[in-house]
Amino acid sequence: MTATLEQTISYKNLTKTYGDKRAVDGLDISFRKGELTALLGENGAGKTTSISLALGLVEPTEGSVTILGHKAGSIEARRAIGAMLQSAELPNLLTAEEHIKLFSSYYPNPVPIEELVEMLQLTPFLKQRYGGLSGGQKRRVQLALALCGNADFVILDEPTVGLDIETRHTLWQAVRACVARGQGVILTTHYLEEADALADRIVVMADGQLVADGTPAEIKALSAEKVIELQTNAGADLIKGLPGVHSVVETGQTIKISVSEAEPCLAYLFKEGFEVKDLKVSQVGLESAFLDITNKNKHSGNMGEAA
């Protein structure tokens, strides 16, 4: 089923410039309800600006963003979103409970506060002032403000940066529960593991542009490289010529080979009787797969969508 404009957050040819810098450059994308999308990219890739545009915090230079058909920033659009912003602090002098009750009053159909308290484990500090809370507790309160409205979409900008493991897991659970209830969740992150573990869909941005869009498996497949490390008497030049080999780097005795598949390359070396010592084959980490995608985009323009 294709989601219509009335059911999605839709970016239409959206561009936002700051002076000469194109923070977001011709973004065309939709986010659906009931789906958890991870918006992935390095610092400065345009993730936060994209989100600020959907929240109506910044005006687009060109194009438009609509939320369920309403213009971003309109009261209807804002009522359809609960948000947690990066590095935004709440007033210190109010208690966690006062903050949550205030934000609940903004929405037509808020989550009962007891439910939030239980889901986010707020009980120990609910009556304490925000200023006295620990970093992890503060993030939980901020998350509560994003979730309390039971809104159609929940947008979280770098929600897990600097979080302890326990709080991170609480957040993950809460986010999964949102999706299970049919809410759409968009979160930005630069942790690929997080995107992989949580998301139904990963959208990769670089230099303000969309460079890849697909399931976590599809995104990983975009750069399924393996690395062979070994010591051998076969020369680097010879190895470079082998099928599937992308690059060869010699460091002292060790040769590092980037290859799409390790087996054919190794089979050749063994068959030809070359000496092979200290052999190690590893999968390229998600982190480097991700860097790979964004670098390829920078060098070759656009690699298109994976989906």
Partner: peptide
């Protein structure tokens, strides 16, 4: 002060007329 802290942004994003 609230603007510096980012609080004003949260309020502007929230459905608070």
């Amino acid at each position: 002060n609230e603007r510096d802290e980012g609080w004003l942004e949260i309020k502007r994003a929230a459905p608070l007329p």
